[in-house]
Every structure is written in structure tokens, then in C-alpha cells.
Design a binder for these strands. Structure first.
Lengths: 232, 232
DNA sequence: GGTCGCAACCAATTTTATTTTGGGCACTGT
DNA sequence: ACAGTGCCCAAAATAAAATTGGTTGCGACC
């Protein structure tokens, strides 16, 4: 009699509640979002105590069939994704991580641009590249540089990747914001990005997906090296 | 007398308010977000009528030095970026584009995971992989598969890339939603993804960034081939 | 008579307060 | 010990009130 509980794991008596729960879920047609009644209510509906019900719910949650959140409720099915909060994201990020993200994303955009870009888009890209060279201040240069990279995303013709890049740029601007920059000087004529941009445009114009991706990757790598301080 | 207003553009008498405004902006230290007092208050501060003040603000907004929004206020500086609207994004996307985006993003996540993952995270990854194999329904398999890919993002330790992947997954689920799937059958024991996942976990566990990225790329390529119908 | 100032009104947004919900603690009775 | 009970807590949704930029209509004044 002393070892009567030995063969019964901690969730042993939960099985009864589990079957009841499973029955309720399949029987009662719950709303589109899969939300089921609050614990206190559901406990009374099933005729069990809240403590007992919670054990069953916890078990189902462990299996991933269920997800709960304080103040929200209990939902059947996989938990929906949380949309990005840029402000919160900015606080938990640093410029290096932003660069890592760009290196992860933009080479593939460059590859797709080489495949899908229209001639008009390539022409615009070349114009923006020229405008970068002609910029008379860092502020102006950065504005054209941003449009240059954005134009590549447009040329990739993938709305999802465009949206992702925009999100990334939002974070980038916020993270970069407030860093000291010489407002009166201008980019030097031998700025490394000029050649990098040239190579990217060439590869896209010549329809070389691999080359375009590589050129973009090297460009961003250069920028990161400058950022970290590995290169002047 | 009839052409007395010809030489005076509509904003002629605004110059006075403009100088006052410019003085106030530089003098009064406004909060970090660049927000300045509400129109009614600011008008009294500058000793002008609201109508007049609004003309000045409108002029500055045209120049892009200012941005306003009903209910929010008036802010000095460029307007912050708009966050992505997933619902709109879904309408303009198709499953193939989703796969292209995944191929662009996830290999790099895999690479970073091989560099930054903790042993605990690698263990969790292996567990999720085993759960995928043990799944008794496609629904359950997909739940674990999603968590598997998400765990890789976590292990990459880059909050920005995690956020981007979550956005992408949100679109993915919405796009995939409602497609027919056999609810009672289960993934076959020789499902190609099992081996793919094994290779990814191995590469991450052995700290091989390049191998992890390649394994992920090949995995997603396989999935895309099945999606398009190039492979059974 | 038409042009300009003025005030009230409007809709978008934030702020504040209230309610609901899952999670957790301490006491109690067996 | 141990489960049950009641209560409180923090997170979140919901509701209500207060702000705020934008708009319209009325009237005064040239």
C-alpha cells in the first residue's frame, strides 16, 4: 500500500481530465482563433477543479498542442508569431548585429535582382550609383546609398524580402541615429563603396546572380570591417 | 493695384513666424523624439494665432524638416519608418516567393548558429529534430518543424534576424493557410527533411558555419523543389 | 463680395482606468 | 504530506476620457 503511487507518474490522474478536455475541444466548436473559455469557467463546465484542469492544460501545452498567455487566454494550435516591435528591437541590438543581418539578407537580394531586374530598374540603379559619387556631404551620400540598396530590393521583385529589408533599415537608422558624424566633410573620391557599388551594378547588369551576390557580400564585409575598426 | 498680390507668394507673411519657429526649435531643448508642444500651446508661446502658426509648420513640413500626425503631435526631423503590414504583404506574395525569402535568410542564420549556439541550445535543437521524427501527424510534424527552425534563429543570437524570420514565418503561415493537407496521414519514415535536419544539427554541433549554411540551403532547396513539383 | 481670422467641431491617437485572465502563494482541513 | 480553497499578482485586453492635428462654417472687415 505504500508503493501504490510509485507506478503512477505525477500526471497519472490527469488522464481523466485530458480525455474530457480532448472531447470538449472536438465537440464544442470554438472560435476561429482557437480560444477556449477561461480556466475558471472551463473548470466548472467540465465539472473539475481549476487545479486539476490546469494540470491537464499544462500537459497539453508541453506537447505543443496548446499555448497560453496571461491576460490573453488559452488557445488550441500553434502559437501565432509576434510582430516585430522596432523600438524594442533597437534596444537589444548593436551596429554589428545590424551588419550581420544585412550580410545575411542583401546578397540574396542582389542575386535575385540579377535574375529579375528590368532594364529600367538597372538604369535607375546606375543613376543612384552616380548620385552617390556626386554627393557633396555624408548626409547626402547616405540618402542615395540607402536608395541604392533599396532599389536593388525592388529589382529583386520579391515583396517579402523588400519588407524585410525595410524593417532592417528601420532598425539600422535607429541604431545608427545619434552617432557622431562630420556634417561638413564629404566622402573622399576613393571611398571604397564606390568601387563596390560599381561591381554590384555590373554583375546585375550582366545577369550574373552569383557575381552579384558575391559583390554585395564583399561590399558589406568592407563596411563591417570599417565599422569594427579592422580597416581604416 | 490688382497685381499687388502677384509678387507676394502665399507664404509671404509666414517668414516672421518661420524665424520665430526656428529660434524656438534651436533655443528650447525639446525631447529626444523631437516633439514640440501642441499647436494651441505653441501658438500662445510664440504670441501668434494658431492659423498663422500652422502656415509656418506646413511650410517646414513641405521642406521635410518636420512631420506631423493627427493625435500624435508635431516632430522635428525625418519621419520614422513605417512597419510592415503583414496582411497586405500576404496578398502580394505567393509560396514560391516565401521560399526564396527563406533561402535568402535561413542559411545565414544557420551559419551564425554554428558560431554562437550554446550547448543547451544545440541539445534543444536535437530534441526538436527527434520530435519531428516521432510526429504522428503532419500537423504535429509541422509544429515541431517550425520550432526547429525557430530554435536555430534563437541560437544565432541576433535579435534582428530573429525578428525578420518571425515576420517571414507569419507571412508563410498566412500564405500556406488553407491549402489541402491529409489530416490523418503522417510523414513517411524516409521523409527527406529528416536527413536534411540531421545534417544541419551535425554541422552546428561541430561548429562548421559553412557546412551549416550549406546544409540549410540544400534543405530549403529540397523543400522548394517539392513545392514546385520538380520532385515527388 | 470675397478674403481672412476665429471658434467649434472631427477623427486619429494617446493616456488613463477598469476588467479579464493565467500564474502563484499561503492557509486549511484532512 | 497533500490536495483543495481562496486570495492576490502581473500581464493583457477592453473601455472611457483626454489630446492633438486637420477641417469646416460662420462672421467681421476691408
Amino acid at each position: 500500500m505504500m508503493d501504490q503511487k510509485a507506478p503512477t507518474p505525477p500526471d497519472a490522474d490527469v488522464s481523466g481530465v485530458l480525455t474530457q478536455l480532448y472531447g470538449y475541444i472536438t465537440a464544442a466548436q470554438l472560435p476561429d482563433d482557437g480560444r477556449l473559455p477561461p480556466e475558471r469557467e472551463l473548470a466548472e463546465l467540465l465539472g473539475v477543479k481549476r487545479t486539476e484542469l490546469r494540470k491537464g492544460l499544462a500537459a497539453l501545452e508541453r506537447e505543443g498542442q496548446l499555448w497560453r498567455h496571461v491576460g490573453k487566454g488559452t488557445f488550441v494550435g500553434p502559437k501565432p508569431p509576434q510582430l516585430v516591435d522596432i523600438a524594442d528591437l533597437v534596444q537589444r541590438s548593436n551596429p554589428v548585429q545590424v551588419m550581420k543581418a544585412r550580410i545575411g539578407l542583401e546578397p540574396e537580394l542582389s542575386r535575385l535582382a540579377a535574375i529579375n531586374a528590368t532594364v529600367a530598374e538597372i538604369a535607375t540603379l546606375a543613376e543612384l550609383n552616380a548620385s552617390c559619387r556626386a554627393a557633396t556631404s555624408w548626409r547626402e551620400y547616405e540618402a542615395y546609398d540607402a536608395r541604392f540598396h533599396h532599389q536593388i530590393a525592388e529589382a529583386a521583385h520579391n515583396p517579402i524580402l523588400i519588407a524585410l529589408l525595410e524593417t532592417l533599415n528601420a532598425v539600422r537608422r535607429a541604431v545608427t541615429w545619434g552617432r557622431p558624424r562630420p556634417s561638413h566633410s564629404s566622402p573622399p573620391a576613393d571611398h571604397h563603396s564606390f568601387e563596390d557599388h560599381d561591381r554590384i551594378v555590373d554583375a546585375i547588369a550582366h545577369r550574373e546572380p552569383g557575381g552579384a551576390a558575391d559583390a554585395m557580400r564583399r561590399h558589406l564585409q568592407n563596411v563591417e570591417d570599417r565599422l569594427i575598426g579592422r580597416a581604416p
